[in-house]
Nucleic acid binder design. Structure first.
Length: 393
DNA sequence: CTTCCACCGGAAGTACCGGTAA
DNA sequence: TTACCGGTACTTCCGGTGGAAG
């Protein structure tokens, strides 16, 4: 038994190094030392924040740009550099970085901000206003500049409104000694229109727009990282160019491109090849999509799975389904397993949730005399993956 | 021009859970 | 122990709606 394990480990270790030197460089949370094609954005961000080193409060900043355009990387990069400079200039600066898509409740966002000042905040149990007062207290005692970077705030605001933002944007009014500056990062350009005008004007004191990378720029980014991540000769320029091209078609998303390259490398490694080839990239692209769907479907709550089952049935038999059709099929399925069906109101919401996860497309349509409903579809090629993922329960 | 379908989706409320504080 | 907090996962209620049919 342990022989087998030893053998696998040994084999893996022996193979290690044929493809990758340092795979971490291709992971999404790696911050490289240089960010090609983002010099303009970096300069602008630094120019705004640099006054913090002189003890002034920088303007609040709103950063726009589609996913994978380097917003997060640039922000983290600049903040990190600023922190390195601060002590030698005698400036007191700390920052909080919160991804409000991962940390997605008011309590946890505020807790995470407070913790970045060194406060100990429990996972739950205390009042939000209590965290706020403790945070203010800690800020005052410390008396420096706190920069709060809120990533993907559009996501947070859509779910919880802009009350927290309103509070944070005006926090300086409650402060004597300390200062707070806010950086809001969003993928959704229209998001600002949904904000309270006061929040909008305050948060948008400065704005920075990140445009998508084109294939050429993506190539530069990938190529630079590939040099460090791979064993020399393991990836050719042609392969990197191919990855860049695929990702450029998907709105210039650098994260996608890096994922693609990394997974292609992993596949090549698994197959014992000593260089990455086009077929590995093609397989990687399929594996990433498959993994995403499988992961999403298998972690779905029970009733969402039942609803998805109902949708799959309807897509198979007639191509698409309306809310009403899905609901009656869902009810039938639920009863057959002995579960109490949820209300149609809730199922309608679950359909929206499936849509947001990218597992189905729900389009609200008006069919005149025949009412208003959602038409729900699933791309055919996803059906088998979903059935596999659902089949295990 | 009006009707009316088949839902949409906001608002408010309930039950429960894991947690804190005193 | 008890009172309270916020988050989740729902339910109940209900006003709202675009456009084909009449």
């Amino acid at each position: 038994m342990s022989d087998i394990i030893d053998k696998i480990i040994e084999e893996r270790l022996k193979r290690h190094g044929r493809i990758f030197v340092n795979k971490e460089i291709l992971l999404p949370d790696y911050i490289p030392e240089t960010l090609p094609h983002r010099e303009r954005e970096i300069r602008k961000l630094v120019e705004i924040l640099v006054v913090g080193l002189k003890g002034e409060r920088p303007s609040n900043i709103l950063i726009y740009g589609l996913t994978g355009t380097g917003k997060t990387a640039v922000t983290k990069f600049v903040l990190k550099k600023l922190m390195e400079k601060a002590p030698s200039l005698g400036a007191r600066i700390k920052y909080a970085y919160v991804n409000t898509r991962k940390v997605d409740t008011t309590y946890r966002v505020l807790a995470s901000i407070a913790r970045s000042l060194g406060l100990r905040i429990p996972l739950s149990g205390i009042a939000i206003s209590e965290i706020y007062t403790r945070y203010i207290q800690a800020l005052e005692n410390w008396g420096g500049l706190h920069i709060i970077a809120l990533d993907e705030i559009d996501y947070y605001v859509k779910r919880h409104g802009d009350d927290l933002l309103y509070k944070l944007v005006r926090i300086n009014e409650d402060l004597e000694n300390a200062k707070v500056a806010i950086i809001g990062i969003t993928n959704d350009i229209n998001f600002v229109d949904t904000l309270d005008p006061r929040v909008r004007s305050s948060l948008g004191e400065e704005e920075i727009v990140f445009s998508p990378y084109d294939a050429e720029q993506l190539f530069d980014i990938l190529w630079e990282r590939a040099q460090k991540a791979f064993v020399p000769g393991a990836v050719s320029e042609k392969i990197v160019r191919y990855c860049a091209g695929l990702a450029a078609r998907e709105h210039g998303d650098a994260r996608r491109a890096l994922d693609l390259l990394r997974v292609a490398g992993e596949i090549a490694e698994r197959q014992g090849a000593n260089k990455v080839e086009i077929k590995h990239v093609i397989q990687a692209s399929r594996e990433i999509e498959y993994g995403r769907i499988y992961q999403a479907v298998s972690t779905l709550p029970l009733h969402a799975k039942l609803v998805l089952n109902a949708i799959i049935y309807l897509v198979k038999t007639k191509g698409s389904g309306t809310t009403g059709e899905i609901y009656s099929k869902y009810k039938e399925i639920a009863m057959s397993y002995g579960y109490d069906p949820l209300t149609q109101r809730r199922v309608s919401e679950i359909i929206n949730e499936l849509d947001m996860l990218g597992l189905a497309t729900a389009l609200v349509v008006n069919r005149g005399r025949y009412g208003k409903t959602k038409i729900v579809k699933i791309p055919r090629e996803l059906l088998t993956i979903m059935e596999e993922a659902l089949g295990e329960t």
